[in-house]
């Protein structure tokens, strides 16, 4: 198993036939590698994330995650594969408002047996350990409705969810853009550490190049894509 965490080859993608929003000759993220992908908003980031997550399929070329090409799997297997191997972290509003803090972190193990099995202890204990490592501790905090948490706390809960059950790949889409500078740096270093701990590859997408420090590699989306202008987000 020395396939990369993500391998993209000769990818072409558009929402309509004949349209080409994204065209990537080759892009690879190695296992355990932490890659900063720089792309201004409107550069096709969302489409790329959809393609990496196997929610969208390219018109041409292929996207492989852990050696598995998305296009070779039927739709429901793609959903399971995503749940088993990828942790997602979004810009904001990462949490389900009707679930408690802990239940939000435990969401992946509801759908993925593999990630439940990979927890070294009971998932709830593992989740608490992860939350503690991300600086969220104490029964009082854990029992608070998620809507009452600060944005920084919410993002850390989401990070714990993305890491629970040791997925091989964590994909983060501007997870710090709603945070102030101080919180941003603290969050970033925590996220990097935890990914290193679990051995997960990290694809971090942001428009803010100042955050690139500490990553193994920095790549600009504009350097990858050869698509003509007017790329849709």
């Amino acid at each position: 198993m020395d396939e990369g965490a993500i391998e993209i080859r000769q990818l072409r993608f558009g929402w309509k036939p004949g349209e080409c929003l994204l065209s990537i000759e080759a892009f690879t993220v190695g296992r355990g590698e932490r890659v900063f992908l720089h792309g201004p908003s409107g550069s096709g980031k969302s489409s790329l994330l959809g393609l990496v997550g196997g929610v969208l399929l390219p018109q041409a070329g292929e996207v492989r995650v852990l050696g598995q090409a998305w296009g070779e799997l039927p739709a429901s297997r793609r959903d399971r594969f995503r749940g088993d191997h990828i942790g997602f972290l979004f810009q904001q509003f990462n949490l389900l408002p009707y679930l408690g803090l802990l239940d939000n972190v435990l969401l992946p193990v509801r759908y993925s047996r593999l990630r439940r099995q990979r927890c070294e202890e009971a998932p709830a204990i593992e989740a608490k350990r992860l939350l503690a490592a991300l600086g969220l501790e104490g029964e009082a905090l854990l029992s608070r409705p998620v809507a009452e948490l600060s944005v920084g706390q919410q993002q850390r809960v989401a990070a714990a969810r993305a890491l629970l059950g040791r997925p091989e790949l964590v994909v983060a889409d501007e997870p710090t853009s709603a945070l102030d500078e101080e919180a941003r740096e603290a969050f970033l270093s925590l996220l990097m550490q935890r990914c290193r701990d679990s051995g997960a590859a990290l694809l971090f997408v942001s428009h803010d190049r100042r955050l690139a420090e500490g990553f193994d590699r920095e790549v600009a989306l504009s350097a990858l894509t050869a698509a003509p202008g007017g790329v849709q987000s």
Partner: peptide, 16 residues
């Protein structure tokens, strides 16, 4: 819609 996207991201099928 956000909720649905979150659920998709953790492995929920559209059928779920």
């Amino acid at each position: 819609r956000r909720e649905l996207a979150i659920l998709r991201s953790v492995g929920a099928r559209p059928l779920d």
